[in-house]
Structures are given as C-alpha cells and as structure tokens.
Simulated scan of single mutants.
Amino acid sequence: MRRRLAAVLLALIVCTVHAQEPLRVGSKADNEGALLGQVVLQVLRHHGVPVVDRTQLGPTSIVRRALLNGDLDVYPEYTGNAAFFFHRESDPAFRDAAKAYALAASLDHSANHLVWLAPAPADNHWAIGVRGDVATRESLRTLRDFARWVNRGGNVLLAGSAEFVESDAALPAFQSAYGFNLRGDQLLVLAGGDTSATIKAAAEGISGVNASMVYSTDGAIAITGLVVLDDPAHVELAYQPAAVFREEALQRYPAVRAPLEAAFRPLTVDMLRRLNARTQIDGEDAAKVAADYLRAEGLVR
C-alpha cells in the first residue's frame, strides 16, 4: 500500500514539474513574424505559462527545422507553406483558405505530431498593387482589370524584385492565369525582396512606376493608398497565419488553445496592415505593438 501511494505521489510530482516546463516560442525574423510571435508569447504569459522568448529566430527553413527538432514548442506559420513542406504546391486545396488549413493540419499532425491552431482570417500572399489615382482612372479592382489595362496598351510600369518577376509562383503565374504579358521596359526590377521599396516607388511615382509587387498585409499599404488588386482566379496559395505547436507541448498546456485562437481571430488583412505599419513604417517595437493590440481587443489586461 505504501509503495503504491509513493508511486502515485511520484507520478504527480513528475507531472507537475513537467507541466511547468516553459514553452519555447519562436517566430520568423521579418516584421510580421516578430509581431505574431509577440502575440503568442504575450498571450501565454498572460495565462500563466512560463515561456522562453526565441522570436525572430530566422527564416522559415530555420524556424520550421527548430520546431521539428524539438528546439521550439510553438511558432506562427502560414497555411500555404504546408504545400511546400509536403510538396503539394499544385494541390487546389491550398488555394482555398478553409481547405488549406484543414489539409495543413492533417498532413502535419500525421507526419510530425504538430498541431495547427485555427488561423487568422488574414491571407498574406503576393499580389499587385496600383497607385490609387491610376486604379480609379482605369477602373482597376482585380487582376482581370489589370490584364485588360495591359492588353489595351496601358502605360504600365511595375516595380518588383527579381524573385517576383521570375518565380513561377508570382508574376509569371499571374500573367498565365489572366492572359497578359509585361514587356521588359514595363518592369523595374529592384535588388532584394523589400516590398516597402517597391510600394514607395509606386506610391510616389518614382521613375514613372505606377504598380508594385506587394504582400497583401504589408504595412506600407495602409498609409500609401495603394490599391491591392483581387485575385479572383486564386492563383496564389492561401497564406493564413496560425500558431503551430508540438503536440506534446500543447498537451502540457491545453488551456492555451482557446485564448490563442481568440488572439488570432481579429487579425484581418486590414488589422495586420495597421499593425505592420507601426513596426515597418513607424519603427515601433513589435512587443509594444502586440501588447497594444491585445489590450485593445480585451485579450489581456
């Protein structure tokens, strides 16, 4: 009897100690990654979970590997990236937001015992933005309208990175789907992939630029008046951000699922643009921006 009681007590002690192990929170090193990482980190802290801050760890390849290797417990990822993780880029499910999430969650749980929490409604993908006055004058709302403008000889000059111009997942995919082709003299190819530079060029008409590659949640969009063209053919994959956990880590703190999903739920495209503008344009610290957001939404005190 005493041995049995001792064994039960030992098991309870082990479980208690195990539950109090901190969660190692990572994120990608870009502006939005830092913001989302801070949202996860601060929600966990608010709910009494011990954490280790490893946000802004690096690019997708590094953060993903750290999670798979057990060096991280959770980080924010985008549903569309699962298509590349599992070599399913041509699967049409990844072009539908709900199906992309369901498939990402299923594949990653089966293969890696990772759990995707419900994603934010924002979809952060490559897109084309056009200066506001030009969009109004030419009645440009979608990429079909953009194709019409190009094909009738419109004065188009688009700024983009070499990756955007050359990648099969970016401009060439848009051109193939919507039936237009930009000549070399209609493209201003900038070094690097900084969308803030291409957005600035289009918004200010630098060198005659009136269109730009963008990411749909770029903070600069919120302050420049650039019109982001809709993609009705769903050329781009759905990229909704979600917190992704190692299953064992989430099992230690199952109560954090609901507050984390509540924290991602208000993150629409417009909300992320406004928050990203504070870090990208105003230079505010991601931790402060995340704290202000969580307080304003009533998610922390």
Rank of each mutant, 00 (worst) to 15 (best):
R88A: 14
L158C: 11
L117T: 06
V165F: 02
A291T: 13
K99G: 04
G225K: 03
A255M: 13
S90C: 03
N31T: 14
L188A: 14
T279H: 04
A222K: 11
A122P: 10
I128G: 06
R278E: 12
A120N: 01
Q20D: 04
V17E: 06
G154E: 00
R131Q: 14
Q42W: 00
A291K: 11
R273I: 01
V228Q: 05
A277K: 06
A291E: 12
G132M: 08
T60M: 05
A177H: 02
N69F: 10
Q280F: 09
V63R: 06
W126V: 04
A66R: 12
L10A: 14
V52E: 00
L294G: 10
T55W: 00
G205V: 08
H234E: 06
A197V: 13
S212Y: 08
L9Y: 02
S110I: 10
H87K: 14
L5A: 14
H18D: 14
A220W: 08
V134F: 10
V300C: 03
L10R: 12
S167T: 07
I206M: 04
A233T: 00
L114G: 01
Y215I: 14
H125T: 14
M1G: 14
H113W: 01
D185G: 02
G193D: 13
G70A: 08
P259L: 04
L68I: 10
L117E: 07
L237M: 05
Q20C: 05
A11H: 05
Q56W: 02
L57R: 15
A211D: 01
R273M: 07
D133P: 11
F174I: 03
I13C: 09
L44C: 09
A191S: 15
K99N: 07
V63F: 04
I221T: 09
R183K: 12
L9C: 09
A97P: 08
V115P: 01
L72N: 06
S110N: 10
V74H: 03
A159R: 08
L114P: 04
A19R: 15
P254T: 12
R295F: 07
A66H: 13
L188C: 07
G192N: 09
G193F: 06
V49F: 00
S106M: 05
K28P: 03
A111W: 01
E236A: 15
L41T: 01
A242I: 03
K288A: 15
V228P: 02
P232R: 03
L237V: 02
E248F: 02
M271E: 15
L188E: 10
P172A: 05
A211C: 14
R152K: 09
R64E: 11
I128P: 03
L36Q: 07
A102E: 15
R65A: 15
L5I: 12
S167F: 02
E204I: 08
I199V: 11
T217M: 01
D270P: 00
R183E: 09
C15Q: 10
R295Q: 13
I221Y: 03
E89D: 12
Y215N: 15
K200H: 13
G80I: 08
V189M: 00
R137C: 04
